[in-house]
Simulated scan of single mutants.
Amino acid sequence: MKKIVFLFVLLIGVLGFSQILSSTLNKSTLALGEPAVLKITIDNLQGKDVKSSPKNELLPFHFDVIKDDINKQADSYSRTVEFAIFDEGTFKIPELEFKIGDKVFKTIPYEVEVVNTAKKDDQISDIMNNKTVDLGFKDYWLLYKFYVLGAIALIALIIIIYYFIRYSKRDKNTPKVISNKTLKDLELLKKKKYIENGNYRAFYVELLDISRDFITTQYRIPADVLLTDDLIDFMKKNNTISPENETVIEDVFLRGDLVKFAKTFPDQQAMESDFKNIKEVVKRSTKDIEFENLRSDV
């Protein structure tokens, strides 16, 4: 009798100081997508820590977790996992490990059978008949406004690109732009100090090249391919260049040819005068172009 009492007291002591893990599954047979709940509880924790799989990762692959709640108190622990399965068949919930302090405890395994409750010959009926709705302008606008606005934006972008390309090219070839470019070329020639150093041949070669390029682009006269005599004759017949500018160009070009072929040797004053006169021709050329445009319009 004493032995029985001793064993009973010993059992009570062991149970009093040990943790109790239990688990319950509320349903073992489920319809497709029907929720079920698995609950794990641990009692008599005595302040020990509980470690298990992270939230939403406790169950195997086919189990779609809807909710995973963990509640831990000083002496108890509970974890409630709500899940659903969307495939037919039998699926197993294996033993799930929970580490309490230094010891590992496992739940019992479960099997869940998932069935398709819809039969092949079942007819699906609409709750109510379909209705025809008349759409107004506002409804169509709400449906298609982004397509309309996108098309308008695309057309506007094409127009902007077209005019940008057209007028950007035109701006590069305006009389004023051509004049400014030529004036910059003349200033670069001035900085080479051919006049101050008496290098008259190099001076006139570059001066005439700049002038020929200018006449070709500004007046549309093929000065880059014509000889000096032919160019002078062409200018007088063409009447695009004003008489004042024609006179300067004729004088400078004839003197430049004489210098290039070593038939004359200009002094510094003559070179400075020719440089200044060509510069003035470039500045006055815009008026020649404006006059020619007015004459063409008439």
Rank of each mutant, 00 (worst) to 15 (best):
Y200E: 07
A202F: 10
D134H: 09
A270K: 14
T228M: 01
I4G: 00
D49K: 13
F203Y: 12
G89E: 00
K181A: 08
Y77M: 00
F98Y: 15
P109I: 04
D229G: 07
Y204R: 02
I42P: 06
L294R: 13
F291W: 10
F6M: 09
F261E: 03
T132N: 08
I20M: 03
V177T: 13
K190S: 07
K279C: 07
K184E: 10
K2E: 13
M1T: 07
E292S: 09
Q268Y: 13
A36S: 13
F86C: 00
T264I: 10
I160A: 15
F275A: 05
M235H: 09
V37F: 04
S28N: 12
D274G: 12
E88H: 05
I20W: 05
L157Y: 11
A31I: 04
V81F: 02
F8S: 15
I232S: 08
I108W: 04
Y147N: 12
V282L: 10
A84G: 00
A202D: 14
A151V: 09
K131W: 00
K99Y: 02
E113H: 01
K92A: 11
K184T: 11
F234N: 11
V14E: 04
K169P: 02
F261N: 10
E95N: 11
V114G: 06
L227W: 14
A270F: 02
Y110S: 05
P60I: 04
I249F: 04
D224Q: 13
N116P: 03
